[in-house]
Nucleic acid binder design. Structure first.
Lengths: 245, 245
DNA sequence: AAAATAAACTGATACAGATCAGGTTATTTC
DNA sequence: GAAATAACCTGATCTGTATCAGTTTATTTT
């Protein structure tokens, strides 16, 4: 069997490529901004926040609604997306220990700029936005760290932007599978929590195409997929596909 | 002649659409962050910055190189883009009175995360990055405004992301043309400073396709285009195409 | 002003991936 | 545990847009 997705390598010297972009937008490290608060500020933070749990599939915030709070994902996995009623674009996925809804601290945007949904059962801490703004004003180290987070976020989304506009489907799917394995489950074998339709949204293609490509990866022994049971078989070839697709 | 690009309206009730995204990422208002500095800070700013002029087509910064400064576009028009050696993605275009290279204030990224090029003759103020960071630490109002700018930036790029992944070519091209007319030249008739190739990059398609579509817009009397001389003839229909494409 | 180079344009062809129209297998609900 | 619904899968078809291979028109260089 010929590996269609490797044909794209022809004529392109990979060592010439300066940058590799990934469709995966999961941040690799935990948010450390709250460590920068004083004990008093941490105490106040407690009184200005509430903890909420969401079941798999539940909506966490809706684009356009009033943003009275910034959120922190304590546990779980969140899909952040734009939606115009016809099409949907997944901007990023947020794992535990990360902030969510930070763009709403902008005075001119008192509404959520995107929607969010729980991929799996998720625990969120809502922080009062006015208190959050007060922290920004009084604690420069905290404020500096928020600037770091915002700029990291844009860099990641830019990478995903590049990936979705310039990689083809095989590469984008390989990307997402590696992302799940590397950054979310941190093992090569796991139970896939996402449906084919959700994988399709994430890699910016139709669910039929995802199904066909997963089947092909399976046949070619790059992965082993039986229902929800997923295993990476040939990591390096998957990576090659992600880079060249 | 049938308007191909209007066929896509069929079956979709436009009033149902919640959001409209544009491929245009030009910010509408001038950067006001420096107004928030004290007189002393403004004086120090002068001694920590240099002014440089770039000719049309010149490179302003290169992705991956050391970022020793944040930039302010005093005059001109700048293309901000990612490039992996094979493909190119225009992230945004920056008009006068806007900051450039803000993502490099992140401690972990002391290199430029994207490249920039002058579309037209451009004047840039380079601000020493360490002085800029010092301002962030000592002036919360300034820092807050930078957070606002960063979050506005992401929102705009997200919109462009949506547009390039979900609109088709006619809509994306209409978008860019309206953007040039509305936000850059602020009139319906002007001299196009961008080549077909640059329009193609901006709307994420091949230059051949741009040429064919411009010709079609011309035939259908949506625009009038003779060489570089450009005029919007039917604004509202262009807008319909931008929304439905 | 001629030569060289780049930009603009044109037509033919190819193809990745969407869409459509089903089928089958799980999972949820009653 | 049967019915209903959702998820998964399959094959056929269609289409938007890239790519290729030119030609013509501008612009720059000499």
């Amino acid at each position: 069997m010929i590996f269609l997705y490797l044909c794209t390598v022809e004529g392109v010297n990979m060592t010439d490529k300066k940058e590799q972009y990934s469709g995966c937008t999961i941040s690799t490290h935990r948010c450390k901004c709250f460590d920068l608060l004083t004990d008093e500020e941490k105490r106040q933070l407690e009184t200005h926040s509430v903890r909420i749990t969401y079941k798999k599939g539940e909506s966490i915030c809706k684009q356009g609604s009033f943003a009275s709070h910034v959120m922190y994902v304590e546990r779980g996995l969140v899909k952040v997306f734009l939606d115009n009623g016809v099409n949907l674009l997944v901007l990023k996925i947020i794992p535990d220990c990360n902030l969510l809804g930070l763009t709403s601290v902008n005075e001119e945007n008192n509404t959520f700029q995107y929607s969010a949904m729980a991929y799996i059962d998720t625990e969120i801490v809502q922080i009062d936005i006015n208190f959050f703004k007060k922290l920004l004003n009084q604690n420069p180290a905290f404020s500096k760290e928020i600037i770091n987070i915002l700029s990291s976020n844009s860099i990641q989304i830019n990478g995903r932007f590049f990936c979705l506009t310039h990689k083809q489907s095989y590469g984008r799917l390989a990307d997402i599978l590696l992302c799940l394995s590397d950054r979310i489950f941190k093992k090569t074998e796991f139970e896939l929590p996402l449906s084919r339709k959700e994988l399709a949204e994430l890699s910016g293609m139709s669910s039929e195409t995802v199904i066909r490509m997963l089947k092909k990866f399976n046949e070619d022994e790059l992965i082993q997929l039986d229902g929800k049971r997923f295993k990476v078989l040939d990591y390096s070839r998957l990576q090659r596909i992600s880079e060249t697709g």
